[in-house]
């Protein structure tokens, strides 16, 4: 009985210690619009850029990390995606603008899962669309001469409707 009690005490002590260390190590992310977001150290594990910075500075206290290229809106979207374990449904809710922004941030912070997810989502948007649609939706300016375009379409005929009935 006594032994058990001691064991239990040890477990509780470890737990308390863990919690304490967690409480100390928080990361403050400062966004481009001046909002400070305090996040758990476990959250930034996936952000390799921040992780590398933390390893280099090696402090026990909380760290402030500026994110001059990330708005608070985008950062909160990223947090939602992370806490939702990158649910496809959450990705579907993002607007094209948000998707593109998040993709850029994922690249900047070196978040592999998020980068993969957003790149795939953007690639999905391109599938089964006409040249005109892709141009319009991705805001691509056509810099071909009419002759060039005719030629290009001819060489890529196989990608358009069916196959020529020879």
């Amino acid at each position: 009985m006594g032994e058990r009690g001691e064991e239990w005490e040890a477990v509780m002590l470890r737990k308390a210690e863990e919690e304490e260390s967690k409480a100390v190590k928080k990361v403050k992310l400062v966004t481009s619009d001046g909002v400070t977001m305090e996040v758990e150290i476990s959250t930034v594990k996936e952000m390799e850029t921040i992780q590398a910075f933390m390893n280099a500075t090696d402090t026990d206290n909380s760290i402030i990390f500026p994110l001059p290229k990330v708005s608070s809106h985008i950062l909160s979207r990223i947090m939602e995606l992370m806490s939702g374990e990158y649910d496809q449904e959450l990705v579907k809710r993002l607007s094209h603008e948000e998707l593109k922004e998040i993709c850029m941030v994922a690249n900047y912070l070196n978040m592999k899962t998020l980068l993969h997810l957003t790149a795939s989502a953007i690639a999905n948007l391109i599938q089964n669309k006409s040249v005109e649609f892709v141009r319009h939706f991705f805001n691509i300016i056509n810099d071909f001469t009419p002759e060039e375009e005719v030629q290009l379409r001819k060489t890529h005929e196989w990608a358009f409707e069916g196959v020529d009935e020879d």
Binding site: C103, M104, N124
Partner: peptide
Amino acid sequence: LPMELKGLILERVPGVDLAKVACTC
């Protein structure tokens, strides 16, 4: 988007769509 990200996205686009993207600019 930076060039490397465009590349990353294009890697995930099927071949037929890639050919259409090539006709945009």
